[in-house]
Design a protein around this nucleic acid. Structure first.
Lengths: 335, 335
DNA sequence: CCGCCGACAGTAACCGGTTACATAACCTTT
DNA sequence: AAAGGTTATGTAACCGGTTACTGTCGGCGG
């Protein structure tokens, strides 16, 4: 039953395995009548070629692996959506797997891809540069997305987090906010680090007299909620919150409103990423066209695989400010 | 460079390939000193075993494939999260791929998994039963999630959509709503069909005098927005909207509010799925513990792979009502 | 001292495809 | 009719692992 091989098909069609292979792969050097016999036999047996065997023999899997930090949240699904579109367009199968925070496990996940895919797309903002270099099987071409910029051995796509954070600070100041608190992302994460740095630099440059307040977070909604409670509890003045990502901004927004604060009249809230949800909450944020970044990553990887050269080693994408209601300009009677 | 094989390792460690294989797989019939030489050689060469070759030889890939309708939206990422947890726990690699609406492409996606994975998890509420049976490689064990119940050749997990819709109708009626409109999901989709049927049946049974109003939709936010506009435009009375999923409910909620309607005072809104976002919008919905369903599916599939029998052919999961603010009980002065 | 046994290591077949090369059949061409 | 070319098909090696089987060596009992 179910596990027909090419030899079974050959036997049934009374030809050699070579002919079966040729016929099913559409080579033209098979007589029409023979081809027909083979196709029929294959259909009758429910023959489906064994991808592992084929890729072993061709040294080509026609698949690319994607390794993401965690497959949840809208941000990642958007990214995958863009990747899938491009991969499909160019005739590759996309295989996703995820990687947890632990560097050790990350290495296992990456190694497991060897011999299953032709190349790798890795988003690893949270893995230390040297671990990442170590963990990548040298046999596999790879394109990195938002990896620390110390990792130079592979081409990569990066987001201009600093510029983004700076644009947001500029926007908040322009709209009349004076006491801005930043909710930071997890420590080991490059995006978080760069956004924090951008916030610091922008403030130092544009409003050197203002105090710099940072609350630690981890990119999850709960961290945003906790930060909101902390802001409410501390007596210190605060008229705007800039969270390092949307999920924290959303958690914060929710908790502030529950506590009776009006947003943006009492406190403005801004995020980063522009997840689909942000629009519904009228959350001001930095748009990261992540689907597009995903698609570009696929495209570059396939170019590498097909020998079209790696192109630019590092490609920088600029996020764009999306101003919405949560940071509406202050009217004159405030602050 | 990078593509060291087991033979390269054998050569460098001055042993046979058999010994390398034994040593690296932790078999005990290798002398300590030999093992050490092999491990060193492997490390020096950056050797990573070729998964394709190994699975060909073992007839076991230690991987399971997941094929989902579309990898976007929180619903799917939650599902994958649950699957990943369980797969990891049991030592399997999870490989995701997605499938578009077209039955033809779906078949290709499913076939592509043959020889890459040991078994398949398929969520295909939108593929006609016979196409699905056709498309599944018979060599691959599979567990179906929310497939039409006509597909009986494979074990499956199903959601009790009818009971869910009925519970929601009951809730809305109990809270004093009288004119309930249902925004349906896409026609070919089983979940959508069953929710619609459940809505119809519940209404017929519990409030036979009430008109049954259905607006077509497709599970996307935009459909919810369009439905809201249609409800506003038509003069017909409507004090509650029950959308077949949360995304449509969210779109509808947003548009109603933008048009100046108060929710729930003027119109109540309810969804289905309980995506993480629903909580932030205080949206009443049916909780579908999709992560748990995903984990169960993995567990059952692995049981099959390891010969522990398929267990129950169909496993039914009950959704639970989560009542939130968007359907708060009407006060006496309304309607 | 001989035969037997256990521990360790090597040889080669096999998994299921692809394809270079060999072969056979048929058709031209002179 | 022989030489040469073209086309359809078969044979077998190969991709990179695993493992059954075989062989070697040292120790031990008789």
């Amino acid at each position: 039953m179910g596990e027909a091989t090419i030899r079974d098909v050959a036997r049934r069609a009374e030809v050699s395995v070579a002919s079966v292979s040729r016929a099913l792969n559409g080579l033209n050097n098979v007589r029409g009548e023979t081809r027909e016999r083979i196709v029929t036999a294959a259909r009758e047996l429910g023959y489906v070629p064994h991808a592992g065997a084929r890729s072993l023999s061709l040294a080509r899997a026609h698949a690319i692996g994607v390794v993401l930090p965690d497959l949840h949240g809208e941000f990642f699904s958007e990214c995958v959506r863009g990747m899938d579109r491009e991969a499909r367009r160019r005739g590759y199968l996309l295989l996703l797997s995820n990687m947890h925070d632990d560097s050790e496990q990350a290495a296992v996940a990456l190694r497991a891809m060897r011999g299953r895919v032709d190349g790798l797309l890795v988003m690893a903002p949270h893995i230390p540069p040297e671990s990442l270099e170590q963990a990548l099987p040298s046999a596999l071409p790879a394109v990195l997305i938002n990896a620390p910029d110390e990792v130079t051995s592979r081409p990569s796509l990066r987001l201009d987090n600093r510029a983004g954070a700076e644009a947001m600070v500029r926007h908040l100041l322009a709209n009349g906010y004076r006491h801005i608190v930043h909710i930071a992302g997890p420590e080991g994460n490059v995006d978080a680090r760069e956004r924090l740095q951008g916030f610091r630099d922008a403030l130092a440059e544009l409003a050197p007299d203002m105090p710099v307040r940072i609350i630690a977070g981890d990119f999850n909604e709960e961290a945003g909620e906790a930060a909101a409670r902390q802001i409410l509890a501390s007596g210190e003045p605060c008229d705007a919150v800039f969270a390092a990502n949307d999920m924290m901004a959303i958690g914060c927004l929710h908790t502030l409103r529950q506590a009776g604060k009006r947003v943006p009249e009492d406190i403005a809230v801004a995020g980063f990423d522009d997840v689909p949800l942000a629009r519904y909450l009228a959350l001001t944020t930095m748009e990261v066209r992540i689907a597009e970044i995903g698609a570009r990553a696929v495209s570059r990887l396939i170019d590498m695989l097909e020998g079209k050269g790696p192109g630019t080693p590092v490609e920088l994408h600029e996020p764009a400010l999306i101003a919405r209601a949560t940071t509406a300009a202050r009217s004159a009677d405030h602050g």
